[in-house]
Structures are given as structure tokens and as C-alpha cells.
Design a protein around this nucleic acid. Structure first.
Lengths: 141, 141
DNA sequence: GTAGTGTCTCTAGTGGCTAGAGGTTCAAGA
DNA sequence: TCTTGAACCTCTAGCCACTAGAGACACTAC
């Protein structure tokens, strides 16, 4: 081993600036350098970075990942905390799905009812302008 | 009428700093002021702000809302553009729902298989560490 | 007049990166 | 050994749509 940051980037499928960013915020440890101050990584770095990427893909926040990583580093601890984090994320995802389904319903209605004439009689615009509409939380994404 | 920004905030259900922000980025027009330079609003402001809020709740970006608002201001234009924006948003929402469903599936598997013992044999941690996992896009939210 | 609430502007911070400037180092080929 | 060119370095600023806070001024009710 003894990978450059570019090699690590390819192997873990994480962009180079993102790796440096993860080092900066302490998700990736500081690593050895060449005489010319370029970073060099070992086998563990690939695994750790892939772990982080996978966790990010599942939508875990950096703080949660920090906890998960420190659990991974201490295999004798109870995994209750990891379970808790995963469950909390699951609940979040379920909430988001149902709120997006509500959005989808409303968007579909808007789009279907639009006769595509002039704006003055456009259902899309009308629906948005309907002040009687109950307001909920903002939609992320 | 002749509402203070606080009154407008209550009526349109949008926070005061957000209203000022919308003015700053040109979503809300500049409005009249008292001698002491406090903003005063009329009836139209409530409608416009509620329109913006509703559009944000449906996840439209500020740029899209700008377009929708300018369409609303010109009722004789074709509403094809509005329809297009709404359809694009609908497609986005559908994509997000299916990607979140994939996340949910994986999270459920992690959580269900976790025997909640020591971290060393924890499925949550193991799954995250599984480097053979195919990688896709990051999950927003 | 005074108390208390509301409003003003301005700057900086959020999360998780991404982009760019301007400079240095490395590895391969001639 | 020298040269090229890609990869690397640090640092700062930008993205989105707000949100928070400081410190000062305006308005309203008593």
C-alpha cells in the first residue's frame, strides 16, 4: 500500500477535496506525508473512507458517523448506540417518504388539472395562490 | 391594511427574517416605509408571500418561484412554463421517493438483523463497513 | 415620560461539500 | 539529468435557503 490521495479517492469512490475535508473535520485521521508534504495512506484508510461514504449514502449526519466510527474502533462495546442511531435514521426516512408522498399527490393534481391554456386559468398557479391551503413543514430536497 | 412586518409574518405564516431575506433576493418587492423606516405592507403582500410559502413547501427552488411569480403577474401568458416547472418538480419528487425507499429497505435490514450485543458482531456496523456494497448517489435529507 | 415590544441593518453561521487561485511535488520518458 | 505534465498542496470563497445575534432605533399603551 502507500496510496496517494488520488488513489485513495478512486478506491473508496470519494472525491479528493472531500477526503481533505473529512480530515479537516476529523472524520479521517491525519495521515503520514512524503518529504514534499503529500499525503500517503494505508489499507485501513480505504476501509474507513468507504465506511463513511456508505454511511453518508444512507443519509447519516457527520456527527452520527463520528459516533459510528468510534464504535467500530472499539468492538467490545455494546452496540446499542449504533442500533439507536440507525433506528433514528430509519424513522427520519419514513417521515420523509410520507411527506414526499403528500407532495407528490398535490403536484400530480396540479399537473393533471392544468389545461395548459393561459396563466389566468392555470391550475398550477391557482393552487399555489390558494391561501386556504393548510401549511406544514418545508420540503427538503 | 397597512401591516407591519410582524403582522404580515403571522398572516402568511412566514418568519420575519425570512420576509426580509425574500425582499433582499427579490422574491418580495420593496415596500413602503414609515417615517421611522419600518416596512408597511398591503393586502397583496400577504397573498404573494403565501404563494411563495406554498411553493417552497412543495419544494420549488427560489429561481422556479421567481418564474412562477412572474407568470402569475401576467395572466395572459401561456402557462406551459408553469406546467413544465411543476412536472420537473414532480419527477424530482418521484426519484427522491424511490431512492428513499431503497434507503429504508437497507436501514430496516440493518436494524432487524442487529442482535444488539457487542459492536464486534453488530450488523449495523458490519453493513456500513461492507466494502462490496455498490455505491450510488448520496441521500439528501 | 417610560416601559416594553417590535423593528432596523449588518455580519456571521449552518451542513456538507465544491470551485478556484496560485504555487509545489512527483513519476515517467528522452 | 532534465523536462514535462499530471497530481498534489493550502487557502479562501461560494453554494442553498435560511437562521441567529449584536447593537441601535421606532412605535404603542399606560
Amino acid at each position: 500500500m502507500d496510496l496517494s490521495i488520488g488513489e485513495l479517492s478512486r478506491r473508496a469512490a470519494v472525491k479528493v477535496p472531500t477526503i481533505r475535508y473529512y480530515e479537516q473535520i476529523g472524520l479521517m485521521p491525519e495521515t503520514g506525508r512524503t518529504e514534499g508534504k503529500q499525503r500517503r495512506y494505508g489499507r485501513m484508510a480505504v476501509a474507513r473512507l468507504a465506511f463513511i461514504r456508505h454511511a453518508r449514502e444512507l443519509g447519516f449526519e457527520v456527527d452520527a458517523i463520528r459516533t459510528l466510527l468510534s464504535l467500530q474502533d472499539n468492538p467490545d462495546q455494546s452496540c446499542a448506540r449504533a442500533d439507536e442511531i440507525a433506528k433514528a435514521r430509519l424513522v427520519e426516512v419514513e417521515k420523509r417518504i410520507s411527506s414526499l408522498k403528500a407532495l407528490r399527490k398535490e403536484l400530480r393534481k396540479m399537473v393533471e388539472e392544468c389545461a395548459c391554456g393561459r396563466v389566468g386559468e392555470c391550475r398550477v398557479i391557482e393552487t399555489l395562490a390558494d391561501r386556504t391551503h393548510a401549511h406544514g413543514k418545508l420540503a427538503a430536497s
